[in-house]
Simulated assay, not measured.
Amino acid sequence: MASAPIHHGEVLQGAFPRGPGLVRGLVTLPCAMYSVRAAFTPDASGEVTVVPAWKSKARTAAGLALVALDLPGGGRLELSGDVPLGRGFGSSTSDVLAAINAVGNAFRVTPTPEEAAKVAVQAEIASDSLMFGDRAVLFAQREGEVIEDFGAPLPQLRILGFGSRPSHDGTAGRGLDTLALPPARYTRRETERFAELRAMLREAIATKDLPLLGEVATASTRINQRHLPIPALDRILGIVDEVGAAGLQTAHSGDISGIILDRDDPEVDACTEHAQRALRAIGIVEQWKFNTDD
């Protein structure tokens, strides 16, 4: 048996210098609200089957993990979990990572995060960085490589999450087909700004500077607004300012966002309740809250 966590969208997502060009990268926000569990039973068939049958990416990942780890045969993969799909919680990567870990556990082999990342990208085209645990990394989601390891976790946060992109009929929670979205095309000025935000995030993590981290997340949200708009973004940012929150983070390929609050502030519960009321007042009723160290 193995498990895999989820995340709550991104703190930063954009395009960053690497070599002579640019590479797309992201920094995810840890979240323990949901998880995926997987069990792999090896057999000599040479093929992998999966339950439920529609979890094709996880099946592919298990087969690729057998090859990557030089393990024999095939087997049966069983998955269970409660992660909402297509919302920005990393449901696909959670399935894939749980499958990889389950294969390893079945043979008492532990894939490295780097090995898991390579398999995950092969299995799902674009992967999140869940295999690195609570390490804050700038991760190239289509190459499966770490662009920068920030050397420490993100500061501990209170997040007031909510569904930020209701569907056309006014309902929320239906998610997005994230791979169907065209990759964002950033301007030169935007890529220059991403380089600045990367340096700011590095400092925020090293010094545990929550306001600076919130500034990075809000700036990333504003830049990506052009590519996947959040309705009422200006009104939401007004609430962020009204309650004295650090910033706003979002799933840049999903439909969830989070107001970033100081977990250790004595007034954090009152601020959270104030923000909840203000969000409901503008029609955002789907809400949840968590601490990143839960």
Score class of each variant (00 low, 15 high):
88 G>Q: 11
222 R>D: 08
76 R>D: 05
174 R>L: 14
159 I>K: 08
22 L>T: 09
228 L>I: 09
65 A>F: 04
150 F>V: 03
107 F>L: 02
265 D>E: 10
278 A>F: 02
76 R>G: 01
47 E>Q: 15
50 V>Q: 12
269 D>I: 06
21 G>C: 04
113 P>A: 11
196 E>Q: 10
202 R>G: 15
89 F>V: 06
66 L>M: 13
246 A>R: 08
158 R>H: 14
165 R>Y: 05
40 F>D: 11
55 K>R: 15
121 V>H: 14
235 R>Q: 15
251 A>N: 13
31 C>F: 06
55 K>P: 07
200 M>S: 13
8 H>M: 02
281 A>C: 02
154 L>P: 00
267 E>C: 01
25 G>R: 03
218 T>F: 05
252 H>C: 04
132 F>G: 00
289 K>P: 00
255 D>W: 03
103 V>C: 10
73 G>C: 09
29 L>I: 02
28 T>V: 13
137 V>D: 01
261 L>Y: 11
49 T>N: 04
130 L>T: 06
194 F>Q: 04
7 H>P: 03
289 K>Q: 14
17 P>C: 08
228 L>Y: 08
224 N>C: 09
83 V>T: 01
50 V>T: 14
198 R>W: 09
254 G>F: 12
92 S>Y: 05
136 A>M: 02
265 D>M: 08
85 L>S: 09
145 E>H: 06
54 W>S: 15
94 S>T: 02
53 A>V: 15
